[in-house]
Design a protein around this nucleic acid. Structure first.
Lengths: 207, 207
DNA sequence: CGTAAAATACTACAAAAGTAGTAGGTGTTG
DNA sequence: CAACACCTACTACTTTTGTAGTATTTTACG
């Protein structure tokens, strides 16, 4: 039996979600609230297995709710259930601690499947939401393409990325600091940057 | 009609995949090879819509194949189709340019759906593969938790992350460089680090 | 085998970053 | 109102980075 908590301000959708969840025997709706404030109070008390969280709430945004709740109850799984499919909403939700992001237009069966899957440790989402996330992961690597950075220069960048000083890098690579500086100088020219952080941002993805 | 190209060294699975794809009218299998080398030669010639790529090939790994092919034919969508479900394989595949990652044990219908969805611009994958990716996105934010970094210090860290110098940050925040240095000194103490890159790595996720 | 790219090493100076304090002002809260 | 956290600003000094060159030695490749 999976206990589900619903946070949704629109009465129609609230009722709809509640109906879908309550109809099946292996799911139980243990609570429904319409505001973020209520969610913040009730969820840590009830500790449901899964929370269906709307984003556009009247007081606090659903994303901020998750951000505040997840540290308090790490074992509660949050599914963002919303009309927005913008990239930023998706990323913010995941960064806040949600593990699933589905659109309200999804079919009832899909919602139930999502609840089960997130409960079982998955991150159910449609393939177009997934693509947004994949694109972000990929963006980091695209950076690494084509600056004519040599293998040795990659070594240097990799060590600098760890936060090592010139002396430490030089020791690790068995070269003199003078040589190292030359490498770094060359790297900066190739990347058209003029300090470490800019170089790392440009070569590896952004922070 | 979606043209599909298959890279798979195991004859049984190769035949199975080919059969699944060829059975439906809206899919056409336009080529099958058993090695990475052949894939590298044939795919840029044929430019199929979708490639089903095995990872464990006899010569070059499927991941390296994608890495080399994707820049040559950016409009070809790659689906990794493999037995491995380790995190690293998943990330490496996505970073190499694949847009979907499915396991060989998946059902035939799921495979066909995946081909269609990736062709339509999605990133189909099971919810447990998705969770691995979500976990990586989240890892970056977990870092930001609990070091007692004040709002002003966050401002400072955010600007430093852009690669700005002390002078530039001080100007941007309308404070003196002396004050800025004090902030940074405090940040370093809180994070137990002693330079910029270490601080950024610790506060935001790793590079 | 020659040559081009890469890696190595050096000088010398300039600029930025980091260390280690003190200290006044502001805002909040028990 | 006292304690506390935070932001601000300062001095003085050290260390690390960055700039701008020259020059020699490997290594890779046609």
């Amino acid at each position: 039996m999976i206990s589900v908590f619903i946070v949704e301000d629109n009465p129609d959708i609230q009722l709809l979600l509640q109906t879908i969840v309550s109809r099946e025997v292996e799911y139980a709706c243990v609570g429904v609230v319409t505001t973020g404030t209520e969610a913040l109070r009730r969820i840590p008390e009830l500790l449901p297995d899964v929370v269906l969280m709307d984003i556009g709430l009247p007081d606090i945004s659903g994303i901020d709710c998750v951000r505040r709740l997840k540290p308090l109850c790490p074992n509660v799984e949050f599914i963002m259930c919303t009309v927005y499919d913008e990239d930023e909403k998706v990323f913010q939700s995941l960064e806040a601690g949600a593990n699933s992001y589905i659109l309200k237009k999804s079919k009832p069966e899909l919602l139930l499947t999502a609840i089960r899957e997130v409960y079982e440790g998955g991150s159910p989402m449609s393939s177009d939401i997934a693509r947004k996330i994949v694109a972000r992961v990929q963006r980091k690597d695209q950076a690494r393409t084509d600056y004519h950075i040599t293998p040795r220069e990659v070594d240097v960048l990799t060590m600098l990325a760890k936060g090592l000083t010139y002396n430490e890098v030089a020791d690790a690579l068995f070269i003199s600091v003078k040589t190292l500086k030359k490498h770094i100088y060359n790297i900066y020219e190739k990347l058209h940057v003029d300090n470490k952080v800019e170089a790392l941002n440009k070569y590896f993805g952004k922070f």
